[in-house]
Amino acid sequence: MASSPASTPSATERASRVKLMIFDVDGVLTDGGLMFTAEGDTMKSFNSMDGHGAKLLREAGIDTAIITGRQSGIVAVRAKELRIKHLYQGVEHKLVAFNELLKETGIAAEECGYMGDDWPDLAVMLKVGFAAAPANSHPEILARAHWVSKARGGHGAVRELCDTLLHAQQRYDALLKAACEG
């Protein structure tokens, strides 16, 4: 039996339960553009405010992870810099990596959030308790997301999501106060 709209949890209710926030990379943590050197190396550009948002989640006790289809030394460096300890790269089937992550952390799927932007993210987005998407995501992603940022991927969408989670879990004000006090 389908649930009625009145019994469907709001995005804020869903966000309030997130213990582990998982991110795709291309189109989420970056703008999706891929720059290649003459040697074939890939370069990516990350938003510093998005990175700070991920650090704030960790400070609030929300674990973070990355599941991405591409393999990149740049992503490994960025994950290490942000102290994201759960990193799955070169993943063909993201749901397999997601299930491994659940076993590794002991966190239930409904206590996870996932932010993705394109079809390879759909299977995981349909399993988590809180599915999020950048504003410029593929229409099929936007149709299935519980929450959509105003910002585009790589341009503050992750920070907007992090702030939303912190507000939903009533941790934003304490973190802001600590930042103001130095």
Rank of each mutant, 00 (worst) to 15 (best):
residue 4 S to F: 12
residue 5 P to H: 00
residue 5 P to A: 00
residue 6 A to S: 05
residue 8 T to D: 09
residue 8 T to Y: 11
residue 12 T to K: 08
residue 14 R to H: 14
residue 14 R to A: 15
residue 14 R to F: 13
residue 14 R to M: 15
residue 15 A to E: 07
residue 15 A to L: 10
residue 16 S to H: 09
residue 19 K to H: 10
residue 19 K to F: 01
residue 20 L to M: 02
residue 21 M to P: 03
residue 22 I to T: 13
residue 22 I to A: 13
residue 22 I to E: 10
residue 23 F to V: 08
residue 23 F to W: 07
residue 23 F to K: 03
residue 29 L to P: 12
residue 32 G to I: 00
residue 32 G to D: 03
residue 33 G to A: 15
residue 35 M to K: 09
residue 36 F to Q: 05
residue 36 F to N: 04
residue 39 E to G: 14
residue 40 G to F: 01
residue 40 G to S: 02
residue 40 G to W: 01
residue 41 D to K: 03
residue 44 K to Q: 11
residue 46 F to A: 07
residue 54 A to K: 07
residue 55 K to Q: 14
residue 55 K to A: 12
residue 57 L to R: 04
residue 59 E to R: 11
residue 62 I to S: 04
residue 64 T to E: 07
residue 70 R to V: 03
residue 72 S to M: 00
residue 73 G to S: 11
residue 74 I to A: 15
residue 75 V to F: 12
residue 77 V to L: 15
residue 78 R to H: 14
residue 79 A to M: 02
residue 80 K to V: 04
residue 80 K to C: 09
residue 81 E to G: 08
residue 82 L to A: 11
residue 82 L to Y: 10
residue 82 L to E: 12
residue 83 R to S: 13
residue 84 I to Q: 01
residue 85 K to L: 05
residue 85 K to S: 10
residue 86 H to N: 13
residue 86 H to V: 02
residue 87 L to P: 02
residue 87 L to N: 06
residue 87 L to F: 08
residue 88 Y to I: 01
residue 89 Q to S: 11
residue 90 G to L: 11
residue 95 L to V: 08
residue 95 L to W: 05
residue 97 A to F: 01
residue 97 A to H: 01
residue 98 F to I: 08
residue 99 N to Q: 06
residue 100 E to V: 01
residue 101 L to M: 04
residue 103 K to M: 10
residue 103 K to S: 14
residue 105 T to Q: 10
residue 106 G to Q: 08
residue 106 G to K: 11
residue 108 A to Q: 13
residue 108 A to E: 15
residue 109 A to Q: 10
residue 110 E to H: 15
residue 111 E to D: 15
residue 114 Y to C: 06
residue 117 D to L: 07
residue 120 P to H: 04
residue 120 P to Y: 04
residue 121 D to N: 00
residue 122 L to H: 11
residue 122 L to I: 15
residue 123 A to W: 04
residue 129 G to T: 05
residue 134 P to K: 09
residue 135 A to G: 11
residue 139 P to M: 01
residue 140 E to H: 12
residue 142 L to K: 05
residue 142 L to T: 03
residue 151 A to L: 09
residue 159 R to Q: 11
residue 161 L to K: 00
residue 165 L to F: 07
residue 165 L to V: 05
residue 166 L to I: 03
residue 168 A to D: 01
residue 169 Q to N: 04
residue 169 Q to C: 04
residue 172 Y to N: 10
residue 173 D to V: 08
residue 173 D to E: 14
residue 174 A to V: 10
residue 175 L to H: 06
residue 176 L to I: 15
residue 177 K to D: 09
residue 179 A to K: 12
residue 179 A to I: 04
residue 180 C to L: 10
